[in-house]
Amino acid sequence: MTKRLKPAERRASIIAVAKVLFADSGYHGVSVDEIAKRLGVSPAVLYQHFDSKEQLYIAVLDEIAGQRESYIEAALSGPDDFGSVLLRMAHVYSDSIERDPDYLKMEMHSVLEGAKSTQLLFESRWKSFSDYIEVSMVELASEGIVNQTNPYSASLMFQGLMRELLYAKCIYFSEKYKDIPLKTLVNQQVHLFLNAVEYKHPD
């Protein structure tokens, strides 16, 4: 017999299960019946909490978007030059994805499916990096600490380096990288990025 949960607990459990299924198969690859079956309840129970599958999908995206990493420690726990802070931020982010790669899977699916909430994911999870890189690149270029790479291109380059690494390491578990710790790979990607923008580390 299914345990009777309070409405908030039931809603949270639906979102948790739906997240795993949507992350694996995308919006179109999962039916309400399947989610209900996995939860051990009837589809009617799901419809008590969400009007439609789309509304449930948006709730899952909102939930993921709301789990943004805190970069306070990254900002305050060591040298505050651009390269050092960026490296610590990259570690915070990659650790978070390693613990819960469903977020990246959802991001991939939602981009392909054109979900309206996709923007939310980018705003919440990548904006810390794009803001930090774009604003810093302008300031540092004027001081000759980085080259004149377009700040938006620099930001995209960094996101690409990180995203590809995390796909390979945390989503499709590429054989090539399986014996190299994620931390080491992140260090290498950040190093590559800093080299590309000709970052001059303060001595």
């Binding site: 970069y71 306070i72 990254a74 900002a75 505050d80 904006k127 810390s128 930090y132 604003v135």
Partner: peptide, 13 residues
């Protein structure tokens, strides 16, 4: 308009 950590780093400075 800025996401963390920029506001924090700016405040610290």
């Amino acid at each position: 308009g800025l996401n963390c950590p920029l506001p924090i780093l700016r405040a610290k400075k």
